Computed example of a mutant assay.
Amino acid sequence: MGVDRYTVGQVARLSGVTVRTLHHYGRIGLLVPDERSGSGYRLYTAGDLDRLTRILYYRDLGFALDAIATLLDGSQDPQRHLRRQHELLTARLERVQAMVTAIEKEMEAAVSGIELTAEEKLEIFGDTYDPAYEVEAEQRWGDTEMWRQSQERTRGFGRKEWEKVKADTDAANARMVAVFRSGAVPGSPEADAIAEEHRAGINAFYDCGYDMQRNLADMYLADERFTRTYEDLAPGLTQWLHDAIHANADRAGATPEAG
């Protein structure tokens, strides 16, 4: 077989179209190869393959086979048909995107337990809020007791409850920055008070002992997203909070976990 001649089986493999479909296209006159092999089998040329490509293109756009035949024969303006099909597909795409957005909101609510819209979350938590954090948190800690406690304690939280959480967090951060800027060193009574307030804030969501608080402090330095959160409050605050938490845990008699 010449390199520019193809059997129906070869065309089917190349195009992903079944032999039965190609035979159907031939019967209705949509794609009729003129050449034949010595055994009498029809052979497709490069021109036939080009026509098949255009048939599949129009078919994917949703055109009926008779409309495709008309377009390929050039008796009607293909631009008019394409413009209309573009309008239909654009409208369909908008409907699908709206459905995807609605489903994503439902997924976020299921993961976080927060019955708020995405807009409400942004209004409350600001532009630092990222739904991806919730998904990542469940992937990392979803099988832990901490995650179970957090989901249980926040189940049923609405806008009012989360606005209070945000206000309390902002107030605690303001006190932390004030102590940090005052020159209080980790291990001082002022810094210890901030470390205890930090632990109390975590305890509102799940039981946070000193070893757990140490782990959180280490994560604040290891994860740039947490680091950035504290550095945006005051440069150097992340390291200071880390050291204050460890010093307070030492004072309380908690021993660092091995490793």
Score class of each variant (00 low, 15 high):
Thr128Phe: 05
Thr128Ser: 10
Thr128Gln: 08
Thr128Leu: 10
Thr128Glu: 09
Thr128Ala: 10
Thr128Cys: 01
Tyr129Gln: 02
Asp130Pro: 00
Asp130Glu: 06
Asp130Leu: 05
Pro131Phe: 03
Pro131Cys: 00
Pro131Ser: 01
Pro131Gln: 01
Pro131Tyr: 02
Ala132Ile: 06
Tyr133Arg: 13
Tyr133Phe: 15
Tyr133Gly: 04
Tyr133Cys: 05
Tyr133Pro: 02
Tyr133Asp: 14
Tyr133His: 13
Glu134Val: 15
Val135Cys: 03
Val135Met: 13
Val135Ala: 15
Val135Gln: 11
Glu136Pro: 00
Glu136Lys: 14
Glu136Gln: 14
Ala137Met: 09
Ala137Ile: 08
Glu138Trp: 08
Glu138Pro: 02
Glu138Gly: 05
Glu138Asn: 10
Gln139Cys: 09
Gln139Thr: 09
Arg140Tyr: 06
Arg140Gln: 13
Arg140Trp: 07
Arg140Ile: 11
Trp141Arg: 12
Gly142Pro: 07
Gly142Lys: 06
Gly142Asn: 07
Gly142Asp: 05
Asp143Ala: 14
Asp143Leu: 09
Asp143Gln: 13
Thr144Pro: 10
Thr144Ile: 08
Glu145His: 11
Met146Leu: 10
Trp147Ala: 13
Trp147Val: 07
Trp147Met: 11
Arg148Glu: 11
Gln149Val: 05
Gln149Phe: 03
Ser150Leu: 13
Ser150Gly: 09
Ser150Met: 14
Gln151Asp: 01
Glu152Met: 07
Glu152Ile: 01
Glu152Thr: 14
Glu152Lys: 10
Thr154Gly: 08
Thr154Val: 02
Thr154Phe: 00
Thr154Ile: 00
Thr154Leu: 06
Arg155Lys: 12
Arg155Gly: 08
Arg155Asp: 12
Arg155Val: 03
Gly156Asn: 06
Gly156Ile: 08
Gly156His: 06
Gly156Pro: 06
Gly158Leu: 01
Gly158Ser: 02
Arg159Ser: 06
Arg159Asp: 04
Arg159Pro: 01
Glu161Pro: 02
Glu161Ile: 05
Glu161Lys: 00
Trp162Lys: 00
Trp162Pro: 00
Trp162Arg: 06
Lys164Cys: 02
Val165Gln: 08
Val165Tyr: 07
Lys166Glu: 14
Lys166Gly: 00
Ala167Ile: 04
Ala167Phe: 03
Thr169Ser: 13
Thr169Leu: 12
Thr169Pro: 00
Thr169Trp: 08
Asp170Ala: 15
Asp170Met: 08
Ala171Cys: 05
Ala171Asp: 14
Ala172Ser: 12
Ala172Tyr: 04
Asn173Thr: 09
Ala174Gln: 15
Ala174Arg: 15
Ala174Met: 06
Arg175His: 13
Arg175Pro: 04
Arg175Cys: 07
Arg175Ser: 14
Met176Asn: 08
Met176Ser: 15
Met176Asp: 08
